[in-house]
Simulated assay, not measured.
Amino acid sequence: MSLNSIFQYFVPKDKKVFFPLFEQAANNAVVMSTILVEAVNSNNPATREDLFKQIDKLENKGDEITHQVFLELGKNFITPFDREDIHALTSAIDDVADYIQGAANRMNLYRIDDYNDHIRKLCELVLQGSTELEKAVRELKDLRNVRAIADSCIRINSVENQADYVFDRAVADLFLYEKDAIRLIKYKEIYAALETATDMCEDAADVMESILVKNA
């Protein structure tokens, strides 16, 4: 076996391994958040329940993608960028999916029937954050369009700030107007899961900004 053949054995097929997996994970989060927006805007309980089941299945798909990335990390000697960044980015995208599923699961289990403006707005912000995350991830494979990645990261940060404001306003309204303690707890947990999903988008954006700096 030639020296070149030995070297090629250790070099990963980057664009055939890591980047497609990043893109699949990010797209999965977009699909989940799209379905979530559809669910909270539906007036049909049976339709909502079916949509929540779809979100569950997609969250499992996201876990499989995450597991595959970690397997590839163990198999490949050379990676497209720092292993810690690959792990952090993958984990953050997986967390976005986890919190989307967590919010949907609570809505379903708690039998929420009043999807107020706060819930709808937070779901829309999760979708916006996920969409910008996917856009940025798709540009990572060659790092030629650094401006596009940076712009998406800025928009993700803006979405997270908006989600913080909506969350604070939503919780304030709960304490001001909700007299049923159990109902208050249910809604607060749902608000928190949705807001945290936008936090995870921001965490992923922070990792990508770190990658940009390291590869400038």
Rank of each mutant, 00 (worst) to 15 (best):
M1W: 05
M1N: 15
S2H: 02
N4H: 02
S5C: 00
S5H: 08
S5W: 00
F7W: 03
F7V: 12
Y9G: 01
Y9W: 13
P12D: 12
K15Q: 13
V17F: 08
F18G: 07
F19T: 01
P20Q: 10
L21H: 07
F22Q: 03
F22T: 06
E23S: 12
N27L: 13
A29C: 12
A29D: 05
V31L: 11
V31A: 09
T34N: 03
I35S: 04
V37K: 10
E38L: 05
A39F: 09
V40K: 07
N41E: 15
N41K: 14
S42C: 08
N43Y: 11
P45A: 03
A46H: 02
T47V: 08
E49Y: 09
L51Q: 13
Q54C: 08
I55W: 11
I55F: 09
K57R: 13
L58R: 15
G62I: 07
I65T: 01
H67L: 12
Q68I: 10
E72R: 15
E72W: 10
E72K: 14
E72L: 11
K75G: 00
F77T: 12
I78E: 07
I78F: 14
T79G: 12
F81A: 09
D82V: 02
R83N: 11
R83G: 09
E84D: 10
H87E: 03
A88C: 03
A88K: 12
L89K: 08
S91F: 06
A92S: 15
I93A: 10
I93P: 00
D94T: 02
D95I: 01
Y99M: 11
I100P: 04
Q101F: 14
A103I: 04
A103E: 04
R106M: 12
N108C: 01
L109G: 04
R111K: 09
Y115D: 06
H118V: 05
H118E: 08
R120S: 07
R120W: 01
R120Y: 02
K121V: 01
L122M: 12
C123N: 06
T131K: 13
E132R: 12
L133R: 01
K135C: 05
K135Y: 06
A136F: 03
V137Y: 05
V137N: 03
E139Q: 15
K141E: 07
L143T: 11
R144V: 09
R144T: 15
N145A: 04
N145I: 02
N145F: 01
V146T: 15
R147T: 08
R147E: 13
R147S: 12
A148S: 14
A148Q: 14
R155F: 14
N157P: 00
N157G: 09
N161M: 04
Q162D: 15
D164I: 06
Y165F: 02
Y165I: 11
V166H: 04
D168E: 14
R169K: 13
A170E: 03
D173Q: 13
L174V: 14
F175Y: 15
E178S: 03
E178K: 06
E178N: 05
D180T: 00
A181F: 11
L184S: 07
I190W: 08
A192D: 13
A197G: 02
D199S: 06
D203L: 04
D203H: 09
A205E: 05
A205Q: 10
V207Q: 00
E209D: 07
S210N: 12
I211P: 10
I211S: 06
I211F: 06
I211V: 15
K214T: 04
K214H: 01
K214I: 00
A216F: 11
